[in-house]
């Protein structure tokens, strides 16, 4: 799975938040890289910078300084519109609180990343979204409104949505945090399976050591720095 060129590289990444006169440094010179096809756990206590790192890697937030390259693109100075397009094509998100669009069906939610890029829902995308829902075991729920699904079902729809545009990287923030044990197990099995079959890179932020144990690599943050790594 692992090829020579890293999927992404961050170097000396710093993120400071200024709230009036108070300045807080959340990421403090962080450097790391991710290779294609990796299945990585991101660990660390609250306030260690996990969420901020995911936001920057997801191009939702700009760092204060440092370098960030992905797929050979320097994303630090990119325009907002270019970052949006890059995010749409190369990055998928799975949030702790599924974050589905409640007025749309499961199928429409999965199709959203493709439809918003093309400006319409195409038959090809409809087929792909149906396949993904089938893959996450929700083919029979495709026309259900998102608001009518259970917590575990919503999270599996969110996983399918994250994979809709065949991204190179999926960022998952506590993907099982709001689920019961059985649903959490099913979601993790799904992510591992997708990583194995599609070769998609997963970076999973978690507090759960059991989940971290299922990942092939662990990155531990402390006070915005890399504290420890396990390969």
């Amino acid at each position: 799975m692992i090829v020579d060129t890293p999927l992404l590289i961050i170097t000396d990444l710093v993120k400071e938040f200024n709230d009036g006169e108070i300045s807080t440094t959340v990421l403090n010179g962080l450097s790391l890289s991710l290779d294609r096809g990796e299945f990585v756990a991101l660990l660390g206590p609250s306030g260690s910078g996990k969420s901020t790192l995911l936001s920057i890697l997801g191009t939702l937030m700009r760092p204060t300084s440092g370098r960030f390259e992905m797929l050979g693109f320097n994303l630090i100075g990119a325009r907002d519109v270019d970052l949006t397009e890059f995010r749409n094509q190369h990055i998928g998100f799975v949030f702790q609180a599924h974050n589905l669009l409640p007025d749309f069906t499961a199928l429409e939610n999965v199709m959203f990343p493709a439809a918003t890029r093309k400006g319409r829902e195409t038959p090809v995308d409809r087929r792909r979204a149906t396949e993904l829902l089938d893959k996450v075991g929700l083919a029979d729920r495709r026309d259900f409104p998102a608001s009518k699904l259970s917590g575990g079902q919503k999270q599996r729809v969110a996983v399918a949505r994250a994979l809709m545009n065949s991204p190179d990287l999926v960022l998952a923030d506590e993907p099982t945090g709001n689920l019961d044990r059985e649903s959490a197990r099913r979601v993790m099995d799904l992510l591992i399976d997708l990583n194995g079959t599609d070769g998609t890179t997963f970076l999973i932020s978690t507090h759960d050591e059991t989940i971290a144990g299922q990942c092939r690599r662990e990155i531990r943050l402390l006070d915005g720095r890399l504290a420890r790594e396990r390969h």
Partner: peptide, 11 residues
Amino acid sequence: IGIMRAMGATR
């Protein structure tokens, strides 16, 4: 709107 933007919807 935040979800849409995160999924790649442009401004």
